[in-house]
């Protein structure tokens, strides 16, 4: 029988894949994809907890996370396009103005 633990382990694995993406990718667009993975992994966790504890709060959280993800993509893509128009590249290594 599939229990909460299964879902949580899956969440963990997906989250870690997202982390690998975050660390590995230097293309900004790909970085956005990785963050989407992170968010989705967490969503699965929330919904699973919601199901197994009989509490709707988890689903509510997942819902709001989706809303936040949507706005993030909108703004993020806008910025990305602006940056691409300026520099012709969305490589992270071209973004080093904050060097201390």
């Amino acid at each position: 029988m599939i229990g909460l633990t299964h879902y949580l382990v899956l969440t963990g694995i997906l989250f870690s894949i997202g982390l690998v993406g975050v660390m590995r990718r230097t293309n900004l667009l790909m970085l956005f994809f990785s963050t989407e993975i992170l968010l989705n992994a967490v969503n699965i966790g929330f919904v699973a907890v919601s199901k197994f504890y009989g509490d709707l709060s988890g689903q509510m959280f997942a819902f709001f996370i989706i809303a936040v993800a949507a706005s993030e993509v909108a703004v993020g893509l806008g910025l990305l396009i602006l940056w691409y128009k300026r520099n012709g590249s969305v490589d992270l290594n071209s973004l080093q103005m904050m060097r201390g």
């Binding site: 709001f64 949507a70 706005s71 993030e72 703004v75 806008g78 396009i81 602006l82």
Partner: peptide, 18 residues
């Protein structure tokens, strides 16, 4: 959340269409 989405939409349009 609705307002946030609206703001994000406007921001996306403004940023991308500049």
């Amino acid at each position: 959340a609705a307002i946030m989405l609206l703001v994000a939409m406007i921001a996306g349009i403004v940023l991308a269409s500049k």
